[in-house]
Amino acid sequence: MSNNMHTEVKQLIIDTLELEDIEVNEIVDSEPLFVEGLGLDSIDALELGIAIQKKYGIKMDAETQDTREYFASVNALVNFIEQSRH
């Protein structure tokens, strides 16, 4: 279940951010998404926030420090989505 969720989130990242040259299995669950690792930027964070809102109905607050942590890695993002849905 959780594994499927990881794949789903990775696919969402690829589709939303138009990462045309990157495959699901190239994104490592625990690696940073921003700056190092995948190398995403602040506009990507906003874009991803909207995609998560659309797909899972979860609204993220751009102002809180927690949001930063939710975007730390695929693992963190999956945890956040699963917790927010319950």
């Binding site: 951010l17 506009i43 990507d44 906003l46 874009e47 909207i50 809102q53 659309k54």
Partner: peptide
Amino acid sequence: KPLSPAHFS
């Protein structure tokens, strides 16, 4: 609908 931040920028 919400605007795409990347496209808006």
